[in-house]
Amino acid sequence: MTRHRGRGIASVNYPIGMNLGGDPSQALVHSNPSGKFTVALSSIDLGQGMKSVTRQICAETLGVPVEDVYVDTADSDTGPHCMGSFASRGTHRVGNAVMAAAREARGVMMEAAAEELEVNAADLETDGRGNIHVKGAPHRSISTKDVAIAAQFKQGKTISGRGIFLVPLSDVDPETGEMSPATCYAHACLVAEVEVDDETGEVAMVRMDSAYELGRALNPRLVEQQLVGGAWMGVSHALYETPEPYYPDPVHGPRDFVEYLMPGPGDICPHDIAVLERPAPDGPFGAKGPGEMCANPVLPAVANAIFNAVGVRIDDLPITPEKVLRAIKAQGGARPQARR
């Protein structure tokens, strides 16, 4: 028995939002009399951090601290329409809608502050800590709370805003497939190192190194959560999972997590990630979406690493020990390729 190490790479891009567009999302932003803001959405937080990312986008756009913003979702009576949380569209589409709503609300807030300070609204700026002051004269200042009270009870203004973001639907030419599928793309490249046991066909992950380009990491910790988790979903897809292990023959379907294999804590390996940010012209602060694409490069990188380790190509997912072992036997043993 020998364990052979190998490295493989893959590079990919991924379209952001529903293919062809036509997938709007809306947002409403309003303040209460204490100068605290609520974002009303009907978008779904699947655990990816939808609420947190839109909260930061709203706070940045309004110019208030993030603690002063709360995102409420998803209630069909109070939240305006959103197409849904899929197709890597949450950050890009909903983020833009929240930005538009926050911009409108900020306009009212600045007008209300200008009236209180008896200056022109164009001469005011926010400090991001809950105050609005005259540019170059920080002492001529008013808190967002006092602005909200004045707007509500003195001026009769609603500090609120509406936002929608829509990439209009593209046609498709039936003959050539000419179309506008997406307005921006995320990118990635991943190197996987594996160890293949030529007696059992088992593949163990040794390490992963990757670079992901996401437009803008709005919250690097949430990005890390997505990329680390997504890469493991990719490993699991590459080496373990399927409800039809002998596809297309629909036999031996697993019914629970005893029969449906996934990697456990003992199977994980170090993953070193670099994040690049090339802002998308139409993204909220340039953001694209890391959600879906993070798993994609892992699958081929693992397959290519297995070839590098033992010289067999497994072109059918998942790459189970059975397939690896059969292929090694068919070629008369492992044939390690040039070490990378």
């Binding site: 947190s52 930061q56 601290p65 993030v66 803008r216 709005l218 919250n219 910790r221 949430l222 340039g286």
Partner: peptide, 20 residues
């Protein structure tokens, strides 16, 4: 990388703020 295409002087964006 791509630094010339970005404004990195933002207050809330780019921070690892804890989830709401």
């Amino acid at each position: 990388i791509f630094a010339d295409e970005r404004d990195d002087n933002l207050k809330e964006i780019g921070k690892g703020t804890q989830r709401q």
